[in-house]
Design a protein around this nucleic acid. Structure first.
Length: 545
RNA sequence: GCGCCCGUAGCUCAGAAGGAUAGAGCGGCGGUUUCCUAAACCGCAGGCCGCAGGUUCGAGUCCUGCCGGGCGCACCA
């Protein structure tokens, strides 16, 4: 049984007996070790209805629990209830972890439901930058986390392969093509200046020769058809480098061709949520507390990005998703409010769509590309970053901060293969255990299996603390997923490694008789959780380094 | 001007739902190695939690106002 449930159950039975059932029983870790292993603030909540001080309530509860077999001690301190666990209770926790094995921490909350995580969704106007990298890893790890909680997860990429930006890109490519033929054609106003178009332009110059001397409708269609698949290939290379795969790619053009836009517009019109002005169709957002009314259909009759995005989300709903999580950068705040409003007006459940919003990435010590821009051709390509610092460090660094904080990517630190680098610190804990296991096997000290082992020799303080920490893992996964906060998992793993390394340095594992078997079982638990955690982050858990 | 996010140690950051004396890593200083990988470990120094009010038994956490930073405020996507 998990420790939180153990404490809750014990308290619940006492409270029921006293006639004060409490629906919610908080269980925490005390701020300092000396106070105890676990604590509860339940007395603060009960004090008013019991007509006593929190401390008096806590004392009553402590007395009632004093004979509980799992607790060595229950103390009332300033209204808090502090529990000291018997080692046997912790040994049972470790046994349960080992029994669960690779499924330790998995949940069932998502069973029978469908979740979509939409992320990256970068316009196919160039390769992915390290900014997109944060989103790629964030979305991927969130998807992994929800999968752990039992959700069937669809990873989806929304591809804006239509519109003005693509046209500008095509024209930029055409200009590069003309340049390749010796015609000094300038990149258009607001166009794409990146070098990545140059080799493609050279290729097209060789292929077409002088077939397209002027920018016209035919040239535009030709260059657009050439450029989009090539940009997609660049994006796929970047995603591949960072180890991210998508299940579904949805193209904006397909949504438009399916006629969804007209349908959604009709619905919005019925609900009086849109109006016409200057030949365009506007969403009545101001009337619902937003800052301005955005255009849904331009006066030339074409739908805006926002319009299609609304239709896209209605389509997601119809595809049967129970919940959609969109991972987006901080520059999309306004759009998020608008889409949410529109969906609400269309009658979708409020909780259908959640946004995981993240701030941008800056590179430490890289003058000139601190402010990245694909359009200006000023960026560091994701694939190049991965080649430089490795996939593991890239992924880890991208999610080690909470999404709503700015991320300063420390290039030099990420490259270091030493303890200063948190990802190596965690990986090294795993490697060490693997190494001890190899040595144990070589010496013939490895137990047949850990499940029926006597764990009672585990009595060192660090051993009990480590088990307490292993017990937290399922909570960490749950909170990291629902708070959209994968950094909590990084923090947890660093902490676990941070108690393991000193323990390993102080205590001998091998050559200790039956203590050795028990300690190997403890190490197996640590290794299991490190492996599970690193896997969820998409980072390797190496056997040797 | 309006909207969203952020402001915690020299640096980079944790402190889910308000809880006990605010934590970690790096950097700095000082130590540890006949022994399972020192790619490690131990110790020390370092804080008016941006500022000012408020809410309450209790605020880094909630509310209000200010200050500072990021992003957005297009018939671009």
């Amino acid at each position: 049984m998990r420790l939180e449930a153990l404490v809750q159950d014990s308290l619940r039975s006492v409270l029921d007996r006293l006639g004060f059932p409490s629906p919610e029983i908080p269980v925490d870790r005390p701020p300092r070790r000396e106070l105890g292993d676990l604590s509860s603030r339940v007395a603060f909540f009960l004090a008013p209805q019991m007509g006593k001080s929190p401390q008096a309530v806590a004392q009553d509860l402590a007395r009632a629990l004093s004979s509980h077999p799992a607790f060595a001690q229950v103390r009332a301190v300033q209204g808090f209830l502090n529990f000291v666990l018997r080692p046997e209770a912790l040994h049972r926790v470790l046994a349960a972890v080992l029994e669960d094995g690779l499924s330790y921490g998995k949940g069932e909350e998502g069973q029978g439901k469908k979740l979509q995580v939409e992320f990256v969704s970068s316009n196919p106007t160039g390769p992915l930058t390290i900014g997109h990298g944060r989103q790629a890893v964030l979305g991927d790890v969130l998807a992994n986390l929800f999968a752990e909680l039992g959700w069937p997860v669809t990873r989806e990429y929304y591809l804006n392969d239509e519109g003005r930006q693509i046209e500008l890109l095509a024209q930029s490519l055409w200009a590069r093509y003309r340049q390749a033929l010796g015609d000094p054609q300038p990149i258009p106003e607001g166009g794409y200046h990146g070098d990545y178009l140059v080799p493609i332009a050279q290729e097209l110059a060789a292929k077409f020769g002088n077939t397209y001397p002027t920018w016209n409708e035919e040239t535009k269609n030709t260059f657009r058809a050439e450029v989009v698949p090539r940009m997609l290939r660049l994006i796929e290379e970047d995603l591949e480098a960072v180890g991210v795969r998508f299940d579904v790619w949805t193209r904006e053009g397909d949504l438009i061709r399916r006629g969804l836009v007209g349908e959604v517009l009709e619905e919005l019109r019925k609900r009086d949520a849109v109006y016409e002005k200057d030949g365009a169709i506007w969403l009545s957002a101001k009337a619902h507390g937003l800052g301005r009314d955005p255009v849904l259909v331009r006066s030339d009759g074409t739908p805006t990005y926002l319009m299609v995005d609304i239709a896209y989300h209605l389509d997601k709903f119809r595809r049967g998703f129970d919940w959609v999580v969109d991972v987006q950068g901080a520059d999309h705040v306004e759009e998020q409010q608008q889409v949410k409003l529109a969906l609400q007006l269309l009658g979708l459940p409020q909780k259908f769509l959640s946004y995981c919003l993240h701030q941008f990435v800056t590179l430490k010590g890289q003058e000139g590309i601190e402010k990245m821009s694909t359009r200006a051709g000023r960026f560091l390509r994701l694939k190049d970053l991965v080649e430089e610092v490795g996939r593991d460090a890239t992924r880890y660094f991208m999610v080690m901060r909470k999404p709503e904080s700015h991320l300063v990517f420390d290039f030099e630190l990420a490259k270091k293969q030493s303890l200063e680098n948190p990802v190596y610190y965690v990986q090294y804990a795993h490697t060490r255990i693997a190494s001890v296991f190899r040595e144990a096997t070589a010496r013939g000290e490895m137990p047949e299996d850990f499940l029926s082992l006597d764990l009672s020799p585990l009595r060192e303080p660090e051993e009990l603390v480590i088990i307490m920490e292993l017990d937290r893992f399922p909570d960490v996964l749950r909170i990291a997923a629902h708070e959209f906060a994968p950094h909590l998992l990084c923090e947890y793993l660093e902490n676990l490694a941070g108690i393991f390394h000193p323990y390993y340095a102080r205590v001998r594992i091998l050559g200790q008789g039956r203590v050795t078997s028990a300690r190997l079982a403890l190490l197996a638990g640590v290794r299991l959780v490190l492996f599970r955690g690193l896997s969820i982050l998409g980072v390797k858990a190496p056997e040797a380094m």
